[in-house]
Design a protein around this nucleic acid. Structure first.
Lengths: 346, 346
DNA sequence: TGCATTCATTGAATCGATTCATTATTGTAC
DNA sequence: GTACAATAATGAATCGATTCAATGAATGCA
């Protein structure tokens, strides 16, 4: 293979210094028009492909890219509707700032750390649930701007989270207002250790995922206020997959036929719950009221349409990117939620 | 800010050559154990952050990343269910090969070219419909492996496409078998120039998007074989958005109440068609049969569930990534489709 | 004509590693 | 005790740009 044509070759052939040749490409207005044109002409003749990206990066120290990490599971990033909305927001901001978006990909945590160390990026965005993460430390070692989404890590440059507590409170209050009295909570995974199924008090006390902790707290607060004892609530931990939660709900309704209100920590779980409830012969909302969390678009088309707590994930991603790229003040932001009433509760 | 600690500093402090220090990090087995440990120890003391990514890239010429470009519209990548499945496949293969995934982001074609030129990647993947694209040329100028998805560009290193013709033929044949006789085709955008609404023969003759050309050809072939004249088919061009196709279908059914079979070029369009048909008082599948294309998961939950032509977009993305990264033979691959019969036709 | 300004260009230093041809050292075999 | 391999370590060259202080030329103004 022929050797690559370098800027120096172009400069020589055009009879100018390397510095001028560089400017002809990068800072055209510093070079006289005729000279610039000659350089570009010569470059074309020689087959020069334009400044070498890696060389420029090394010299300038800018990568022109934002790293996005999903430590819990990469596949999740392109499966969960909420994660996709998040990515859409990140993408939007990156496009606005003319920065590329590097998705750090890995099959396991160890590989993720390597991937992080090999990524040429200017800043990092991490979406994760757990806060005891050595992937986070790997990023922090790089000493670059870092914004965490949905979890608050001490020492992170910035965090963007939801007011999950208030949202959950709103959800529970709404079911109470609709007349539900016997509650089941369908929780997201609470810990690094998978343990789906009924959730005992011990596990409830050791929730390491911030989102789960907050939402659980919010549910409990509202129910307690309404005079419902925590021990009377059915707690089930579900994988964030409709097919899985559907099964869980069928089992649950067999064991606890008295349940008349389901609080699901995600719409994906809630959609499965609708299926499970229907399969168990329940009429929704007459026999059983269901409310989800997130307010994803799919919730409009379910049967019946799903009530939920709406969050703006696109904006969450966009804001996080803005913070990481240094355009927005980099500290902690808490986004609000709102109640979305549809057929599954009213 | 203190100056960055370089490998040379570490080498000096540890009393070894720079070459050895480099090996201690990159090729540990070339360095005696005690020496290596001393180097790592010194590195820690000095606060060395590990080899500088950009410097390494420049020297080795490897970026460790795969560029993914959506020239038609970046936002589309994170909105269309099919594109998301594609990304999931790409992500899976990238993870397997421990390569990061660089999403080239841009708000307009001009910016996209800059973004491409600034991306430190080893190969490119392009998903696009049109084949007269100067973004493609910009990539080709970089002289790196390139795989095009869903379009066949002359000179591209590789292409991965679907047998769209056969799939469309199968769809039309199925509707005929179900008894439909008066057809409407809901087409995806056929050209760079937006022109939604009824599609005249002239525009039908100037389709620059390969996918649309092939699917249209497949529909026509099957219908012709069944003795249906092309002039008797209603052609409508839709934006790939359910809300849009719903409107289009309402109008269409007002103008052409005789239509009893809808061939939609995407499930997203088909889902909107179901809404539009329902709003127009049609019973599906009794009055009107609808078949989509793609076989997305959402089609299971529509009312009635959507018949479709299933394609494996995840595999399409995975295979394309494999080809671009040089692990699969890099030529042209054509993936097959299959018929998915559900409630909207039977 | 002289002096200050502005504009264009030069050329060497720099970014921070990896690589590879050499040299030094140690071990094994005869 | 010598020859030959195998193993470790060296250090200079290299990857390909950008940057910046210094220089030269051209212009403006008194």
């Amino acid at each position: 293979m022929a050797k690559r044509v370098r800027l120096l070759d172009v400069a020589k052939a055009a009879g100018v210094s390397q510095g001028t040749a560089s400017n002809a490409f990068g800072k055209p207005d510093l070079v006289r028009k005729e000279v610039r044109e000659r350089i570009l002409e010569v470059a074309r003749e020689l087959g020069y492909r334009g400044p070498h990206v890696m060389a420029r990066m090394l010299r300038t120290g800018k990568a022109g890219a934002l790293g996005v990490v999903f430590p819990d599971n990469l596949e999740y990033a392109f499966s969960d509707p909420v994660a996709i909305e998040l990515l859409r927001g990140v993408g939007r901001e990156c496009a606005r700032q003319a920065v590329n978006m590097m998705i750090i990909s890995a099959e396991n945590p160890e590989q993720a750390i390597t991937a992080i160390n090999n990524a040429a990026v200017d800043a990092f965005l991490v979406h994760c649930y757990s806060d005891d993460n050595d992937i986070i430390s790997a990023i922090q070692r790089r000493n670059q701007p870092l914004v965490c989404i949905d979890t608050d890590i001490a020492g992170a440059a910035g965090t963007v989270v939801l007011d999950d507590f208030a949202g959950a409170e709103m959800a529970a209050q709404h079911l109470i207002d609709c007349g539900a009295r016997k509650f089941a909570i369908l929780s997201l995974q609470a810990n690094k250790a998978e343990n789906f199924g009924p959730m005992n008090a011990k596990r409830r006390g050791a929730v390491s995922h911030r989102v789960v902790r907050e939402r659980l707290g919010g549910y409990h607060a509202a129910l307690k206020k309404a005079g419902i004892a925590i021990e009377d609530i059915v707690h089930i931990e579900c994988e964030n997959m409709s097919s899985h939660s559907a099964e869980m709900v069928e089992t649950m309704l067999r064991d606890h036929p008295e349940v008349d209100g389901i609080l699901a920590m995600s719409d994906v779980i809630a959609i499965g719950a609708l299926d499970g409830a229907r399969a168990s012969g329940r009429k929704i909302p007459e026999d059983l009221k269901v409310i989800g969390f997130d307010g994803i678009a799919e919730g409009e088309r379910t049967d019946p349409p799903l009530s939920s707590i709406r969050q703006d994930s696109v904006e969450k991603g966009r804001l996080a990117a803005e913070m990481a790229l240094g355009e927005a003040e980099s500290d902690s932001r808490v986004l609000e939620t709102s109640l979305l009433v549809r057929g599954s509760t009213a």
